[in-house]
């Protein structure tokens, strides 16, 4: 057995323990099934829900907001981050604004976004963008401003016009850092879209949870939580695969 397989097996132990403990709590009557439904019931309910159209529509709504917000954040974050690293003028303007806005709890802006953009997709996508933007922007900036000077010199000496250096050297050299930022941004997007849907929404996974909570359907409260966790795992895995493909030349990916 390889070391990797051993590690994987070792990692499954706590997951199995959690599920076993969960089952035990129900089986031995420490928790009533109305508060803590047994795991088998929850997973069966999840499998059943995944085939219903309404649940699928909720997942689709969540995914749409997640991707829209995340992609806007990637475009904005990478552009501003590179620009701030390349130009001292832009840097001196962006730096203090980021210093103020990055630690601001963006979720507090949500009521303002609701008032300005309404209760539809717009306000939720904007909130996702606002939250995912800063990790991407900051790691892009960090990556772009620590690019080895001599890579730039080598490209300039080979006849690259200075304005093309940005795309031909800085952007690819900062790619590892940018993708790390994207990974953090993606997880944050998952979290934020769910929360926004919980606070006010008429569809989406967060709304499913709130509806279940109002009617004290414990089983239906677990289903959307497990779904978002699975979505997060799948998206994270997909981004990881993209990352190792894009960075195949870089050491220690």
């Amino acid at each position: 057995m390889t070391v990797r397989a051993q590690d994987l097996l070792l990692g499954l132990v706590p997951l199995a323990l959690v599920i076993a403990l969960w089952q035990a709590l129900v089986s031995f009557g420490y928790a009533p099934a109305t508060l803590l439904p047994p795991p088998g019931l929850v997973f069966r309910r999840l499998a059943q829900q995944l085939t219903t159209l309404t649940f699928e529509q909720d997942v689709a709504a969540t995914l749409f907001r997640l991707f829209a917000g995340f992609l806007i954040a990637v475009v904005l974050g990478v552009t501003i981050g590179i620009a701030a690293a390349a130009s001292p003028l832009i840097n001196s303007a962006v730096r203090p604004v980021v210093r103020v806005l990055a630690p601001l709890p963006k979720v507090a802006l949500y009521p303002a976004l609701l008032l300005l953009l309404g209760f539809g997709h717009g306000s939720k996508i904007t909130l996702v963008t606002a939250d995912a933007l800063f990790p991407i922007l900051l790691s892009t900036y960090y990556g772009a401003s620590t690019v080895e000077q001599k890579l730039v010199w080598s490209a300039l000496a080979a006849g690259t016009p200075p304005r093309e250096v940005l795309f031909k050297v800085i952007l690819p050299a900062a790619a590892p850092s940018i993708l790390t930022g994207c990974r953090i941004g993606l997880v944050i997007s998952c979290i934020v879209v769910f929360l926004a849907e919980m606070i006010t929404s008429t569809d989406g996974l967060g709304h499913v949870l709130v509806t279940a909570a109002r009617t004290f359907q414990a089983v239906d409260m677990f289903v959307p939580l497990i779904t978002i966790s699975l979505l997060g795992l799948i998206l994270n895995g997909a981004l990881g695969a993209l990352r190792s493909y894009l960075l195949r030349g870089f050491p220690e990916v």
Binding site: W153, S154, A155, L156, A157, A158, V169, P172, A173, G249
Partner: peptide, 19 residues
Amino acid sequence: GPGPDRGPVFQEFALFPWK
């Protein structure tokens, strides 16, 4: 400024890792 008439070779190699 730099130009292709003068080609540098650095101690740090400075190869493009993505190529």
